[in-house]
Structures are given as C-alpha cells and as structure tokens.
Design a protein around this nucleic acid. Structure first.
Length: 810
RNA sequence: GGUCGAGUGGUGGAACUGGCAGACACGCGGGACUCAAAAUCCCGUGCUAGCAAUAGCAUGAGGGUUCAACUCCCUCCUCGACCACCA
C-alpha cells in the first residue's frame, strides 16, 4: 500500500538529518573537484522575518547548488546576516531594548525559517556583521584605507535626514528624499569621514570588461560613475583682470554661446561682489539668500520655471571674442563641472528656457542630420544631437566630435583652459550619526589630532546601553556615553576622545563574501590560501535594488584589498544576475497596509516546503516579477501528490520497460538539468508535469525510477529523500550522482517530421533517424496527402533539414 | 531627457544557436463518481467558418532578408524598471 503525501510526516525529519551532519557542505581546498561559489545576497534579519521573495530566491539558488553537487562540483553556498542598520535601531528604541538582543532574536527566527525550507546552506559558515569578531575586520579595512590616504575627514555639506537624524550618502537620496524613510533631506554642514572612491572610478568602469554581469547591470555601473570629458575654458571678465573658468562638455557649440551661468552657492560670486554694479549687487545677494532657503526637492523640480539674477558683469569668450552676460541661477549645481557653465540656448533645452526668460539671443551653429539650419524658436526645436558645425569660424565644416577635439587642442596650446575627465561619482560619505553600526576606530587627541587605533585594539566594541536616542545637533548618540568616549591617545598617552560616528550599512556588506571563505579566522580577515581557492564568486544572485550601490562599494573595497595584497583578483564577482519580485495577487508590491502579504511560514505549514519551493519556481521566469496566485499553488500541490504516488506505484510494479520510455526518461533528465542550470525553473517543473501526463501508466525499470527520484531532488528535496527511503535505499539521495544522459537516447530511431509546402505544414512522414535526403524525398512523394497537394505543379526546391523538417517549394 | 528591458490565447507563461507557435499550469465548458457538495478522475478549449474532414487568420503595427521569422534587420507605437535641471 503506498503512502499518502503528507509532508509534515517527513520534512522536518530530513532537515534534521541534513543539517546535523551537513555532508553536502563545501570542502576547503579540495583539488579533485571543480569549485563553485554561489552567492546570494544575505538578508537583513528584520522583525517580521522572511519575506516570500527570500523564499523564492533562496529556493532557486538551493536547487542549483543541489544539482551542481550531484554533478560533482565542490559548492560553496553560504548565508549570513546583514544586521546593522536603522530598522532594528528604530525598533529597539521604540521597545526600549538593546538592538543586540533584538538582532539575536531576529536572526534565530530567520535561521529557523530558512531551515524549514530545507535550504542547504553551509550553516557552519554563518557570518554576522554585528558580531565583534566580524566587524573587527570591517574596522581593520577602514584603518587600512586610512593608512593609504583613502579615508579622510572633511567639513562638508551633507544630506541630512531630519527624521532618522543621520547623514546619508548621495546614493541614498532619491528625488531629494531619504530612501529609507522618504523624508525630504536637508543640507547640513558636518565633519564627515569620506572614502576616496573616486580614485578608483576608472578601474571600476574599465574592469567591467573582466566580468560577465548582465548588460543592464554593467550599464548602470558605468552610468552611475558617469565618466565624461569636460572642457574648462577661462574667460576674461570685461573691465576687470578677473577670469572665470567655465566648463562644458560641448565646446563644439562655443560660437552659439550667449551667456554664462553660475551656481548661487559658488564662492566666485562673493569674490566678484564688489566688481558688480551697485544696482545688480543687491539683486544677486537676495537671489543667493532665496536659493539657500529652497529645498532640494524644489530645486530639482524640472518643471519649475527658470530663475536667476544678472550680475551686471560680462565675460569675454576667449574662443569667439563675444560678450556674454553672467547670471547666477539655481539650475546650475556646484558639483557639476566647475559650477559655472556656458549657456548655448540653441543646443541645450535648459539654456533655451533660460534664454527665453531673460530675453537672450539664440544662435544656431549645428546642422541637424537632415541638413536643417532653421532658426531655433521653441524648446522643441532645440537641437542637442551631433551634426556638422557651421557659423563657427575655424570649426566650420567639422563634425561636432571633430570640433571638440579641435577646441581641446586649441585651449591647451593657448593655455586658456584644459581638458578634464570628470565623474558623476562623488567620494563616499562614510559616517552615520547613529548608534547601531560599526564604531569608527579613530581617536581624536588634542595634541596629536586624528589618531588611528592600533590594530591590536580591534575590535573596538560598541558599548551595550539602552539610551542612545539620536540628537538633532548632528552628534552621534555615542557622544553621550562619557565612559566610552573618553580615552587615552594611543600615540602620546594623553587624554583623547573617540570618534563617535559609526559606519554606514554598506560597510559590513562590502566584504562579507570574503569572510565566508574563512569565517573563523582570528588572525586575518580571511586567509589568502582560502580566498585564492574560493574566489571569485562564480555567480552572485540578487535584487535590482543593490546593483548600483552595494555592487560599486564592494567592488571598490575589493580592489583596494587587491592593491594591498589581501586578495589576488581585482574583481569579486564573475556573474551578477537580477531576480524578479513576488508581487501580491493585485499586482502590487506586498505590504502590510495593502493586506496582500503572503506569509511563507503559513505556506510551509499548509502545503509543505517542497510544494512551496516548486510553486515559487513554477510561477514564472527567474528574472521577471511574478504575481501571487493561490489557484496555481493548488495546481502544483496536486502535481506533487501525484508524483509521490506515481513513483511508489511504479516501484512496486517495476519490470522491463519499453525503449521509448527510456528515451523519455533521458529527455526528462536533460530538460531538468538545463532548466535548473539556466535558471529556467518554470520549464523544469513543467517538464516533470508533462512527463507525468504522458508516461504515468508505463512500466519502468527500477533503475529508471531511481533516476526519476534523483532528478526530483533539486526542486523537491524532501519528497525525493522520502521516496528514496521508501524504495529501500539507506543512503541520502543527495549523495547520488546526477544521471548521465545517453545522447543517442535524446532522439528516437523513428522520427515523425513535418512536411511543409510553401512554408505551411501540410502533413508529416515517418523517417529513420539520419536518413538521406534521397530516401526522405521518396517517402514524402509517396505520401497521399502530400502528393495531392503537389499534383499538377512543379517542385522548384526540395529542402530537407536532417531529422527536423521538409519544405517543398512549388 | 538618458540607459536597460518587455509586448505571444480569457490568464501566468513555453518555443535550444531561424525549422510543427501556444509546452506546462490556471480559468472555462462537458462528463464520471456522489442523495448532494468537496475532493478525485476523464474529455474539450488560440480566433473565424463548418456537423465534420478541413480551410483561412494569428506572436504590438508596418516594411525587409529567407525555402522558412515570436526569433535576424529597418521604421513606428505601447508598457515597465532604473537614473536624471549632469550642461
């Protein structure tokens, strides 16, 4: 009598077996197997626990590594906890408990959830960014960065979130709002730690050629770094001996330049103030004041009408000798170029809008690709493309590209400017004014200034306290803990204060994949022998929200570690792909407020881990977003039950099988293998269903059934293990080798191929595999249906693609 | 505005390097079992015409290459994601 499918009876039993001995786990330095490092983004262990998205992504990765192990690879599949950061801290403040405790509880819960899915992570390599044994090395990397001049302090305006009461990086500000809480950020001047990521800008772009990320991921990295060639040109200010240095990326349009615009915060305005005519001075001063008050969001609003103030001054274009009024305006940003820009209204939309507002001339100098040279009279006519230059003296007739080169040479020869490579990427503001982060291992001494902590004093542990409310004045909560702050200077022994800012969330996640290689090492962050063995990460699976920042930061740190000899490879990841998200039944992002959240624990409880896994893989392709659908999981549940019954029934009635059954089994093995290795799990699940539909009433040999159980393992591991035991096997199904495919079995000996006439299928004939064209033609012409079509007409061509198709052209 | 990607039945989606479009599932229709329902099982299901065999039309729109195009090329439309007063 065969067993009913009841996952509660056996899923936890098998999990205990797997995780108690972890016989599947990675073997350090193993030589006779090929290594494979499958990395998944480590989760932030938040209170509510695992999201259904985690369930899906990790299940998919687990299927892949289970298959790879059975194919003989030495797989590293680790997991850890990215546990520092605001959500936990804010929650801890609310309930008045230390975040250390809460983090521990969250991690325990998360771990339990992941195990209940049967995920075969290397549980003894767990890494936790908030563990002092871990962040000791995060701090160590910081000290090294400092030692190499890549970490510096600067008094700079930073983005300040008044709700979270912390500064944040440019990268964390979206649309003028803090990405974590959506509060509009303010500008605040604070002494900050900054990392010189810009020094690595070129390598971060150029080394993308060494990896195989998705094209979209590479594009995003390039875009964010934003390398551009700029032309900085000096203009004399009329009637003074002052010059201004303006910048442009389009010097080919110089003869169309009719004004100069300066960012209102630009210090040159202060310098030029007394050169301005009386009547303009007041207006400019007022404009600067107004601009200061405007919020970032308001300022970045493109639809707002252009504003500005005339300085009363004129610049003399050193290339064209024309006279150009200088304006202060807030659509120019200090961080772009030199903060002073040439206005070319005919060839830049913003410049055109500005020119209209202030009634400035519009001069066209680039011909459009279709030869147009009409005057630009509306915004829609503004021509920003490339083309041929005219109206431009020595540049006439050149292409825009050629003209740029010419101007570049000209300004450098004449000494009136220079060609500069600039980046959109800015240095990385690295301090946060919050409690729950890695303390920055620095001491401020009145006598010695900034003094790095000696390595032996690491880790510098975060004091465990219950009072750590952030303050409004921009000081970190650590500043209030006197016994921690007050210390002695490691250099002179005199009184000193500790740095009270902490590191951002990105710090711990910038190198965690290295720690997985050697998680218990207390001598170094990871031994080079082990990182040489395991790195580079072969495949990094993750979400789209981390492909700019986390990827950029971790590549930067890795390159730095490469430079100082800690690792032997300048790039950390070979492949980076992006998963889709699981959306609610209504097509919207799952959220508590919308009430469309699906709880993974409930699913596992109701359907079991295997059905949950198979369903999440079946819903749709890996890269795409998928909508939750309760009906579909019931369909998958039905299938899993049938499969469980089918294998048992086939086993008790096992015997001699037919040839085409063996062909079908081979085809199935092939489809499952390809589906999983290509991350097309939906097709793999479909292959199982299709096989069941067509072959469940056949007779199978025991050997065939064993193969069917084995290939069920990656997607339905518990079920496979249970069936393996039911069929009398003593070992774990995970120890089986993945079945070899007999290539000759993938194609039947007798094939039925379609016959097309003029590209339309009109019939089909049976042929022997590998038959000659002559034989096939005979066979086709014998066919009644086909010959009826051909009757009375000429065969112009007879096309036969071996074992595939025939097309007759009449 | 930029970059990347996507448009296939009522729905989610298949289709390997151009070779039978719609696998698999959901939904829907019909049937079996049942007093009935649920569960389960069987059959059908792209659109149009036809009792049917069958024929015609179909992968966002239009053109092209080819014996053959969801797939390659050109033009356009729509949607999505990310970035953006970056000069």
């Amino acid at each position: 009598m065969s067993k009913q499918y009841n996952p509660k009876d056996f899923e936890s039993k098998w999990q205990e077996k797997w995780f108690s001995n972890m016989r599947y786990k990675a073997q350090d330095l193993l030589k006779d197997k090929e290594k494979f490092y499958q990395l998944v983004e480590f989760p932030y262990p938040s209170g509510p626990g695992m999201h259904i998205g985690h369930t899906r992504n990790y299940s998919m990765a687990d299927a892949v590594v289970r298959l790879r192990r059975m194919k003989g690879q030495n797989v590293l599949f680790p997991i850890g906890w990215d546990a520092f950061g605001l959500p936990t801290e804010n929650y801890a403040l609310k309930v008045k408990r230390p975040p250390q405790e809460i983090t521990k509880e969250n991690i325990d819960n998360f771990r339990k959830q992941l195990k209940s899915l049967g995920l075969t992570f290397d549980w003894d390599r767990e890494v936790n960014t908030t563990d002092p044994d871990y962040y000791k090395w995060t701090q160590w990397i910081f000290l090294k960065l400092y030692e190499h001049g890549l970490a510096y302090m600067a008094d700079m305006p930073i983005n300040w979130c008044p709700k979270c009461k912390t500064g944040c990086a440019n990268e964390e500000v979206i649309d003028g709002k803090h990405e974590r809480c959506g509060t509009p950020v303010e500008q605040k001047k604070l002494k900050q730690w900054v990392l010189k990521i810009t020094e690595y800008a070129d390598r971060l772009i150029d080394d993308l050629d060494k990896v195989e990320y998705l094209d979209s991921v590479k594009a995003l990295q390039r875009n964010w770094i934003g390398r551009k060639t700029w032309y900085d040109i000096d203009y004399q200010i009329e009637g003074t001996d002052e010059t201004v240095r303006v910048s442009t990326t389009r010097p080919d349009t110089q003869f169309g330049a009719t004004f100069v615009v300066v960012a209102p915060e630009h210090e040159i305005l202060k310098r030029l103030m007394d050169k301005m005519p009386e009547e303009n001075r007041e207006e400019v001063r007022e404009y600067i004041e107004q601009a200061k008050k405007r919020s970032e969001i308001e300022r970045l609003d493109e639809t707002r009408e252009k504003t500005g103030a005339f300085t009363g001054l004129y610049a003399i274009n050193s290339i064209t000798s024309s006279r150009m009024p200088i304006y202060a305006t807030d659509f120019v940003l200090t961080t772009v170029g030199t903060g002073m820009v040439v206005g070319v209204p005919a060839h830049d939309r913003r410049d055109f809008e500005f020119a209209q507002k202030f009634d400035l001339p519009v001069i066209r100098v680039i011909e459009s690709k279709n030869g147009d040279r009409f005057d630009i009279t509306s915004v829609d006519e503004v021509y920003e493309d490339e083309g041929e230059v005219y109206n431009s003296d020595f540049m006439n007739g050149l292409s825009t590209q050629g003209a740029r080169v010419k101007v570049g040479e000209y300004i450098e020869e004449e000494g009136i400017g220079e060609v500069v490579t600039r980046y959109h990427l800015q240095d990385w503001i690295f301090s946060r004014q919050r409690y729950w982060g890695e303390p920055i291992p620095i001491v401020h001494c009145e006598k010695c200034g900034v003094v790095p902590l000696p390595e032996e004093e690491l880790p510098l542990e975060l004091p465990v306290v219950t009072e750590y409310e952030p303050s409004d004045d921009g000081r970190s909560p650590l500043a209030n803990i006197d016994e921690w702050v007050n210390t002695t200077c490691p250099k002179c022994g005199g009184p000193a204060e500790r740095e009270t800012n902490t590191m951002p969330n990105w710090a711990g996640s910038s190198w965690y994949f290295l720690r997985y290689c050697d998680p218990d090492n207390d001598k170094e962050l990871a031994s080079k022998e082990l990182t040489d063995y395991w790195m580079r990460v072969d495949h990094y699976e993750g979400g789209s929200e981390h492909i700019t920042l986390h990827l950029l930061y971790s590549r930067f740190w890795h390159k730095f570690l490469y430079d100082i000899g800690v690792v032997s490879d300048p790039e950390p990841y070979q492949k980076r792909t992006i998963h889709g998200n699981v959306l609610g039944e209504d097509g919207r992002k799952m959220s508590k407020s919308l009430g469309n959240v699906i709880n993974p624990d409930k699913l596992i409880n109701e359907y079991g881990a295997d059905v949950t896994r198979a369903y999440l893989m079946f819903m749709g392709p890996y890269e795409g977003d998928v909508l939750w659908n309760t009906r579909t999981i019931q369909g998958v549940d039905k299938f899993v039950k049938r499969w469980f019954a089918f294998i048992q029934q086939a086993w008790v009635s096992a015997g001699e099988s037919e040839k085409d059954t063996e062909v079908a089994v081979n085809k199935l093995v092939d489809r499952i293998e390809r589906g999983i290795l290509d991350w097309k799990f939906n097709t793999a699940v479909a292959a199982f269903m299709g096989f069941y539909n067509n072959y469940n009433d056949r007779k199978f040999s025991k050997d065939q059934i064993e193969r069917l159980i084995t290939i069920s393992t990656p997607i339905m591991p518990h079920l496979s293990e249970e069936l393996w035991a039911i069929t009398g096997h003593k070992n774990s199904v995970m120890e089986n080798e993945w079945p070899e495919i007999d290539e000759s079995m993938l194609v039947e000996d007798i094939l039925e191929i379609p016959v097309q006439i003029n590209g339309r299928v009109r019939g089909r004939v049976e042929i022997e595999k590998g038959a000659t064209e002559k034989k096939v033609k005979e066979k086709v012409l014998e066919d009644d249906k086909i010959s009826a079509f051909i009757k009375g007409k000429n065969i112009k061509r007879f096309i036969y693609i071996e074992d595939k198709i025939v097309n007759i052209v009449l």
